[in-house]
């Protein structure tokens, strides 16, 4: 549990960090809260020669809200997301989900940028970002570019981010006022990754589903945006048959690992239970 040796850098700005990434090439890793990277380094599954610690970069530490447009800096911690009343007021699923990430000590240090950027399929925020149709802003030597959360994840620990780029901001438009939402997660204990988890963001028009966004955590090597399930629910009255059809569609896209949480069939089953329960719970909060 002792990492290999590495050089440590602490840039003061995004441009300095991006410069370091360019100079050091694929031997450099960005560290934010460190909750994923440092254990990997201790296990020597990850052996960066350069660690670029971004905690001094002020421009990525804010939550900005203009109307329903939200921008969250990559270095905003889970604890800051939980404590933001403004954010909670327009998008309560972020607090709900953040409270299901590990424990308070970890949430005080863990960042949303680290959670979404490293591509660990066990992380909770990527599925939420897909459900919110968020956009990730990546800074590179040639300026910035934007990638949709739904296009960002390629495989476990592989994302659309180039090695010389850094995630700086997360942007999304909050769901319509009166929406319902839920993040339903089954885990073995506090601090564990999900056996399966589902996020549902639901907008009703009277008794009819106007829009729904469902995404899944830790049941494949990337987060899963459940497009077909969404399609099957929109326009329905959330009757049992429609929910069942959506659940089956969500289960159909899963491909979980067989691990200590249980075999594949069990985790797929739990994904279905989480989707169903999240839909029903979201419906109770939608108006």
């Amino acid at each position: 549990m002792i990492p290999g040796s590495f050089d440590y850098h602490r840039p003061q700005s995004v441009s300095e960090a991006v410069g370091l990434l360019k100079d050091k090439g694929d031997e450099a890793f960005i560290v934010a809260g460190g909750h994923s990277l440092i254990p990997m380094m201790k296990l020597r599954m990850s052996t960066p020669e350069h660690l670029i610690d971004i905690q001094d970069i002020a421009e990525i530490k804010n939550i900005s809200i203009f109307g329903s447009d939200v921008t969250i800096g990559a270095f905003v911690t889970q604890a800051e997301i939980i404590s933001s009343e403004a954010l909670h007021g327009i998008c309560p699923v972020l607090r709900e989900a953040s409270l299901q990430i590990a424990d308070p000590q970890i949430r005080n240090v863990g960042t949303i940028g680290g959670n979404v950027a490293n591509g660990d399929p066990g992380n909770d925020m990527p599925a939420i970002m897909q459900a919110l149709d968020a956009t990730f802003v990546l800074a590179g030597e040639e300026g910035t570019r934007e990638v949709k959360a739904r296009d960002f994840y390629e495989a476990a620990y592989f994302t659309a981010r180039a090695e010389t780029e850094m995630l700086t901001l997360i942007k999304f438009t909050a769901p319509a006022a009166g929406h319902g939402s839920c993040y339903m997660k089954q885990k073995r204990k506090i601090g564990d990754y999900a056996t399966a988890a589902a996020v549902v963001i639901l907008t009703m028009n009277g008794t009819t589903v106007q829009n729904v966004e469902i995404a899944l955590t830790n049941v494949a090597d990337t987060p899963l945006y459940a497009e077909e399930a969404n399609r099957l629910l929109i326009g329905t009255s959330l009757d049992d048959a429609s929910i069942k059809a959506a659940v089956e569609a969500a289960k159909a896209i899963t491909d979980p690992a067989d691990d200590g949480r249980g075999p594949k069939d069990f985790r797929t089953h739990i994904a279905g239970v989480m989707v169903e329960r999240a839909i029903r719970q979201a419906a109770t909060t939608a108006s």
Binding site: R188, K189, I190, G191, D259, G260
Partner: peptide, 10 residues
């Protein structure tokens, strides 16, 4: 990660 040590929550 896998060997079960319950916390106060469990």
């Amino acid at each position: 990660m896998d060997f079960y040590l319950p916390t106060a929550v469990e």
